[in-house]
Design a protein around this nucleic acid. Sequence first.
RNA 1: GGGCGCGUAGCUCAGCGGGAGAGCACCUCCUUGACAUGGAGGGGGUCACAGGUUCGAUCCCUGUCGCGCCCACCA
Length: 914
Amino acid sequence: MIDKTYQPSEVEGRIYKAWEEAGAFKAGRPERARADAYSIVIPPPNVTGSLHMGHALNNTLQDVLARFERMRGKDVLWQPGTDHAGIATQMVVERRMMERQEPGRRDIGREKFLKKVWAWKAESGGTIVNQLKRLGASCDWSRERFTMDEGLSKAVVKVFVELYREGLIYKDKRLVNWDPKLLTAISDLEVVPVETKGSLWHLRYPLEGKTFNPEDKSTYIVVATTRPETMLGDSAVAVHPDDERYKTLVGKNVILPLVGRRIPIIADEYSDPEKGSGAVKITPAHDFNDFEVGKRHNLAQINIFSVEAKLALKDNENFSAGAAPSPDLDTTLAMHGMDRFAARKQIVARLEEMGLVDKIEPHALSVPHGDRSNVVIEPFLTDQWYVNAAELAKPAIAAVRDGKTKFVPSNWQNTYFNWMENIQPWCISRQLWWGHQIPAWYGPDGKAFVAAEETEAQAEADKHYGKKTALKRDPDVLDTWFSSALWPFSTLGWPDKTKELDRFYPTSVLVTGFDIIFFWVARMMMMGLHFMKDEKGAPEIPFHDIYIHRLVRDASGAKMSKSKGNVVDPLGVIDEFGADALRFTLMRNVAPGHDIRLGPQDVENNRNFATKLWNAARFVEFNGAARVAGFDPKQAKEALNRWIAHETQKAGLEITQAIEAYDFAGAAGAAYRFVWNVYCDWYVELSKPLLTGPDGAAKDETRAMAAWALDEILKLLHPFMPFITEELWAVTAEQGPKRDAMLALSQWPKLEGLTDDKAEAEIGWVIDLISAIRSIRAEMNINVNIPVVLAGASAETQKRAERWADFIKRLARVSDISSADSVPQGSVQLVVRGEVAALPLIGVIDIAAERARLAKEMKKAEDDIDRVDKKLSNEKFVANAPEEIIEGEKEKRAEAADRKAKIAEALERLKGAA
RNA sequence: GGGCGCGUAGCUCAGCGGGAGAGCACCUCCUUGACAUGGAGGGGGUCACAGGUUCGAUCCCUGUCGCGCCCACCA
């Protein structure tokens, strides 16, 4: 028996457990050994994270595909797992330690700290997995992976070593984006510009050999900067070679204030005469552009900061090289250890005192911030490991260009190309502890030995130095995205040759958000194509399709964020409305090119849809409509039953094609309309007289058909609403013949040969007639049962009326249906599929109102005729338009003319009544 | 500066060459035996603006305005 109401919270946990116990989501089920493979790798959530709405969307999309393909009989692997999320996780653990007032990570040391992180992972790592289960995610959990588990770590090391040996990974000293809070380098992608109102300081640099005089412009040159504190590290002043103002100064020197160092005025095209004063200070160690200028002119790289972005003037021997000792220099050196922003204030104050500040202008600029730490990033000169991304990008670009991998929607490929074609070296080393430690060991002279094992590196080093030599391992770890980049093959067992790799690589589709196309998608493409080969030895893509979705926003369209407090917790929504309602809401609203707005009202509406389905099933059960063994919908006799079979096939096809095209909203919408507007609104209503009528073949057939169609509905809906459909599947199995024990593993509907235009014409007429009568009833406020007279109806229509009289009477509240040659006087007249149905309502209705209604109809008919006439009298239209369009117009005109004539007659008859 | 996308009913969005649709909201009616988490009916749109192409433009092209996002740069 189906319960009176559906309680998701009581059902969902039990259903999920049943799926798991049955191994329903396991890839490689023996009975599917010969089936086509279908695979998706999950975008691994942070191991210590919890489920947010973006996850809910992302994973529902994947689950729809996985369940759909599983039901189509494929051997589906939805590969789950989690990411160690280096910086994020390390930060979380450090924060916890701080909150608990425990000693910091540096106090306890690397080994103890890592133990704590692993403990935290063990404690909280299961959260997100359980939350995904609550969503209904049909991952093969028996294969769950973690980016830092043994196998994946092996893959990381192998990739690093191989790329190093190929020269595609190298160590380099250059400017990096340095995060002074996290004390690590980060990649370009982890830097976000923040619009800031700052100042533009115009500073006077005294020329060498002249006595500085603020009143005499020939004694100094003005440079403009947004970062005055970096002046301590200046190595030059650059002007444009063609700038007449400064031409005579090129080759001369200035004396750097506060330091006393002599630095040259150089000519370089980097300097833009339009900007600032036209002369620009060059600080190679603290600005990316200046770094390049410095290289061109062989300028000293003077690092003035420590890793914490505090002045480290005493640590750089170049800093005061060549400067004469002076009280100024002493004061400057005394600033050692001062924070960069405090230093800025003090430096500006000192320059002002000395008359060296020309002017200060307000200036809007965007300042780079760390995306995790949210502090100002410092360009910083360090040794780091880099990947030659430009080289790896080539095949990755080609694969998309050649259509081997397709973006859905396709315009994302432009974004991909744009970035890939301008890709910069990828800084992969991080000065963190939590992550894959770089497999490099250094000899006493700093030479690096890279190998998978320490013993190997040691052997190499010993050979190189000719004696047993002590090595020191590189303390840094790899960027988290380095291991994520290997995810499509590392999860399948690579570098071992596994049957999973054989069967499931390349994966079928990647489903992910647009915000990690660069971070993740691009890098998986690069690594996949570099390391994976097809049977012919050609580079192999990691996935065939890349489905890109956008953000989930709140009901008012605002981005969800903790600080705004508008975050909708998917678990809360699931608790209140059920996972199916949430999933269906997301799927009905997901649209390429748009973010999704998610309001509680939407979820509630879709919960109502679940209720509707539930009640339809109850109706079916209540009326003894159980499945019948060997029932073949093709053999149905009753027009109503043939019609619903026809409609089921139509809906099934629409849903199937939509999912195949990644049109999730289209598929969910089609399912919604079929269940509610076709099955519930019409089939169930029209079947009532049969189901409550006398026993017999028609009743039996209707019972069987109602149950059959419900079964098909459960299947078609299952990818979207797995819980309620599985529950109904189980309950409806109690009666009737045995069938697949589990809906999740049942066969996707193969609906063929059920098209029936005759049944459609018949039931369509019934529906249209009932709708037309209802419309009049509502419009005219008629609350009593009324008779209907079919005027001049064809024999076919009269027969239909007889067959459907009971139904029409019931659903349109009609007292009697009869036929007549002409329309009785004083009738309201309806045109249904070209024939007239009259409602003799004299005395019941307001004649004036009816006349007004008819006048409106008349106007519409005349407008239609006019429009067509205008077209058909246009020679060019007749000459150029395709035949079928012209024929269509002619049909339209004939129909409108017929309508007009009937309305005219009706109006005529009304005269008598008035 | 470069790129992508979007302006269609009050709201959210479909449609993308042959006189515009859905859901929600709104209004009216309905305690009919699956469902008031429901049923029936209804109103509501110069499809941002201006040109162009076409027999015909919401749909294609160009431009303008407005909105959003991404990348680069920012002396």
